[in-house]
């Protein structure tokens, strides 16, 4: 079972063959508090490493989702459209999008490094 990798923008990536599954971290959902709406790309859209690929609306703010990799979106988690609160309940069980032909995961952190990094000022 592949390990989850993390980006500094609080997105996790789980690799399944050539496909990457993306989601938000527990730290992200905690900071956002009640998630009210999720804006995600369409299947077939391209996402670009370092660029915004959608956003999450919570009661107090709108947070951009920054892509940790580049690739083509193959699946979008439609469940989140009706029940965005699932991201607060279980951020690691509810993925956002699946991406194929993903670029390198070299710059991403393992869980330990990520947890330490977000505590740094």
């Amino acid at each position: 079972m592949a390990e989850r990798l993390f980006s500094k923008h609080h997105i996790w990536v789980l690799k399944e063959g050539d496909t990457g599954i993306l989601g938000i971290t527990d730290h992200a959902q905690e900071k956002l508090k009640s998630i009210m709406f999720v804006n995600l790309p369409d299947t077939g859209d391209m996402i670009s490493d370092g660029k915004r690929f959608g956003d999450i609306e919570s009661i107090k703010t709108v947070s951009d989702l920054i892509a940790p990799v580049s690739g083509e979106v193959t699946e979008v988690n439609e469940e989140l459209i009706d029940s965005p609160e699932l991201l607060n309940d279980a951020p690691y069980d509810n993925w956002l999008i699946k991406v194929k032909n993903i670029s390198s995961l070299e710059d991403l952190m393992d869980e330990e490094t990520y947890l330490k990094s977000k505590d740094d000022p």
Binding site: M36, F37, D55, E57, I59, K60, T61, V62
Partner: peptide, 20 residues
Amino acid sequence: AKQTMYSNARTMISSDQRGF
């Protein structure tokens, strides 16, 4: 920049609907 209406008092008073 996008501002949602969840915290807009007037919206909460009237319809409480998602908006931006």
